[in-house]
Write a protein that binds this DNA or RNA. Structure first.
Lengths: 236, 236
DNA sequence: TACTAGCCTGACCAACTGGTCAGGTTCAAC
DNA sequence: GTTGAACCTGACCAGTTGGTCAGGCTAGTA
């Protein structure tokens, strides 16, 4: 007989699930200099992996094991940097929210509605193209009634939306665009542009299984802009 | 010492999680006549509960315990009617897909683009209002790369989309609408109308915490229709 | 009334979950 | 070199998960 203690089950340990394809954040970190570099590299690797897993499965469906695996670190190490799954999620959402708000600069800095709307729609389309994971995390969270980010919606997003709606309302009052309701227009822009991130898989499938090429996407961007500009009474 | 067998843990049984607020499907069924009625009533109760839980949490996040609880039946009974969580999910998606496709009748039966688009947009908006759960289940699934409904996307949705795109392309070719790409227009209609279901929580929050009233929603429906009609060169 | 096919469910299980922890390793400062 | 703070991780745990099953219950028929 062997000498294994009787209650030791033959289950595989947690760290056995580190995949072969893992980006080996640890090795990268060790190549960099200093402990600060190690912390920075590992945190970034974990945050990137978390964003991708949360986008794929939502908060409930995501597992810390899979996040650790994609980040190339043992699960215990993930919990060394981020004490709980929720803390990790909040950090991911923080980053997404900031990127989003920054895209809206044109609405503040440009007075001509045609130019401002064109730039804003283009910026949002580009974000959907280059940074689709963030949009998916946000959409999943809001669809599930935002149990973890309700404070964002009630404070920062509410204020942001009110400010931009005021600009659009002024344009309409001054007769520079057709008299559309600002919120309806904003929602249409958000919905349409984010559709290319959130429903990217469906769009790819309906494009014959091929992701939209850069040329196709550029054309779509212009078409979307044209329809919306005409929709508010402007000439594209 | 007591007589309990040593490996019997004192964990609470599964059926203890039937909540007080459960709609008591069992009682309803027993009031109806016959075993066929029992089966029908229980299946419908479970499907309705499943749709709501899948909409709230996605496939991975949903638990059969919660579905059974919302349906008012013990978990074991749920598995009597639906052998696996996946089988239940497929039945839910089947129903959603059928409702969706039926809403597109106007595009087939009406030749005038202004009337056809108006009716289609109105039908999709009404669906988002009256049946938001379906839209959420679909969105969650597609966002997570549709691992369970890819066959729908590749066959039925692809054919459906191609047919309706042909109609829109013909309108554009005949100069009855502006020369827009059919897919871009369809995606914009889907994205905008479904936004009022999928992002309903965000819209409510930005509406001061109040759900859009019937009057507000009717106004939004007209505004959305007007912007899109103008967007394709029609007079609303 | 007796029978039985279909309906119902408490108790159970193996697998998996988020999170912990003791004990080891590495690095920068002295 | 020595020190100690920061980093790392295999093994572990209590709670939860989807799913099973033996055995009881009930409606409809003969």
């Amino acid at each position: 007989m062997d000498t294994t203690r009787p209650q030791d089950a033959p289950n595989s340990p947690d760290s056995a699930d580190v995949g072969v394809e893992a980006p080996a954040a640890g090795a990268t970190a060790r190549r960099a200099r200093g402990k600060a570099a190690i912390r920075s590299v590992n945190e970034q690797a974990i945050l990137a992996a978390a964003e991708s897993v949360f986008a794929d499965y939502g908060f409930q469906g995501a597992t810390t094991r899979l996040i650790a695996q994609r980040a190339g670190v043992p699960k215990a190490n993930l919990h060394y940097y981020f004490p709980t799954k929720l803390a990790l999620y909040r950090r991911v959402v923080d980053r997404i929210f900031q990127v989003w708000l920054d895209a809206a600069d044109p609405l503040d800095t440009i007075d001509d509605p045609r130019t401002a709307l064109t730039r804003y729609i283009h910026a949002k389309m580009d974000l959907s193209r280059q940074y689709p994971l963030g949009s998916k995390v946000w959409a999943t969270e809001v669809m599930h009634r935002a149990p973890l980010i309700q404070d964002y919606l009630e404070t920062r997003l509410t204020e942001w939306t009110a400010d931009r709606a005021a600009v659009i309302d002024r344009w309409a009052r001054e007769g520079r665009i057709a008299p559309v309701a600002a919120h309806t227009l904003l929602y249409m822009i958000w919905a349409t542009t984010q559709h290319y991130a959130d429903f990217g898989h469906q769009i790819t499938t309906l494009n014959g299984g091929q992701e939209l090429s850069d040329a196709q996407f550029a054309r779509v961007k212009d078409e979307v802009t044209a329809i919306i500009l005409r929709g508010v009474g402007l000439v594209p």
